[in-house]
């Protein structure tokens, strides 16, 4: 698709989304300009606020990278939330280990690796259910999300509960030395930024410039045709689910080691579901994903200004996100319809 066409599509989506949201705001008696200024000021107008945006951007981009693999393979990985939770559990398991003798940096690295592994295994389980059990990945994923949520609640109220307490507020804080290092004046760990950038570049490279990427695309685009070229769509799909789960798990690891420093029931912060919207809005393409993640992270971080400065509920940012995605889908749908000559 030419650049002009792509630009046209972006403009159409923006105009549609802004128009719909603006109309809604006007009906509610709120100035869209005020909301726009508030959201922008609240997300990128200071270094600290931009740090807060990055805190959201990192796990969101990790989940989105994972979903790029599964969407390319033609799979709807709804189980991404459960995979984030499993990654968080895996990282917590390592960070709670006593007397390992390992230096904190090594333990943190091991925790992140474990989170990748745990998320990957959960993703693989959804993949197995699909390939061996014939369970649609949407239902399998949803079921596994509930299981993961149940496990995390059990751990927090059971084996990992705070001494003398039984509270859903989470496990004990990890020792300070096991918090990922954050320089003075920052609120986000530079190591996490480096990690997510590497993951994104690798995702782009694997999907767009390797034989395996081509196999995923082929399996997703036309499994029957792929078989003719010796590709096993079930195996490719299983691998994609495992990688996708691993990256979502990594997001869970980042959440516990960089953001909350403990395991909490809502450790996934719904980034998995949000990432589904990101990748859909990106049209399942790699390049726009970090930009859309940044936009969504700005909306999420900036939305906190709505109740503080305007006494408007911050869930309005969810309405804006929803409008963006719906507009995106509408524009794609209309363009496809037009190209088919209807």
């Amino acid at each position: 698709m030419s650049i002009i066409l792509q630009l046209r599509r972006i403009v159409m989506i923006t105009v549609l989304a802004l128009g719909a949201v603006s109309l809604l705001l006007i009906l509610l008696g709120i100035s869209p300009l005020t909301i726009g200024i508030t959201l922008t000021k609240g997300s990128i107008f200071s270094w600290l606020k931009f740090n807060h945006v990055l805190t959201i951007w990192i796990p969101l981009l990790l989940c989105s990278c994972g979903l790029l693999f599964t969407f390319r393979a033609g799979l709807w990985n709804i189980g991404v939330e459960g995979q984030v939770i499993c990654g968080a559990i895996g990282a917590t398991l390592v960070l709670r280990l006593d007397n390992t003798g390992l230096p904190p940096a090594a333990l943190l690295s091991f925790a992140l690796f474990t989170s990748f592994l745990a998320g990957g295994l959960w993703g693989a389980l959804a993949g197995l259910l699909k390939t061996r059990g014939g369970v649609n990945e949407i239902f399998g994923g949803l079921g596994l999300n509930f299981v993961a949520q149940g496990v995390v609640l059990w751990l927090i109220l059971g084996p990992w509960k705070r001494a003398g307490m039984a509270s859903m507020s989470g496990t004990d804080l990890f020792p300070r030395e096991l918090w990922m290092w954050i320089p003075p004046g920052w609120r986000v760990a530079p190591a996490a930024i480096v990690l997510v950038v590497i993951v994104f570049l690798l995702t782009g490279m694997i999907l767009n410039a390797t034989r395996f990427g081509l196999k995923i695309k082929a399996a997703g685009f036309n499994p029957q045709a792929a078989r003719l070229f010796g590709i096993r769509p079930d195996l490719v799909g299983f691998t994609a689910m495992s990688i996708g789960g691993g990256l979502a798990g990594l997001a869970g690891g980042v959440q516990v080691s960089c953001v909350y420093h403990r395991l909490i029931p809502s450790i996934s912060s719904s980034y998995g579901y949000l990432a589904l919207l990101v990748v859909m809005l990106a049209g399942y393409k790699v390049t726009p994903v970090p930009i859309i993640c940044l936009l969504f992270a700005c909306l999420a971080a900036g939305s906190i200004q709505l109740p503080i400065t305007l006494q408007i509920d911050s869930s309005l940012s969810g309405v804006i996100q929803g409008a963006l995605v719906l507009s995106g889908l509408l524009v794609y749908g209309l363009q496809q319809r037009k190209s088919r000559g209807h």
Partner: peptide, 15 residues
Amino acid sequence: PADRPGITVPMLVDD
């Protein structure tokens, strides 16, 4: 964390 996913107390204090 359930009502404001991803937003922490230190973040809000900064704000």
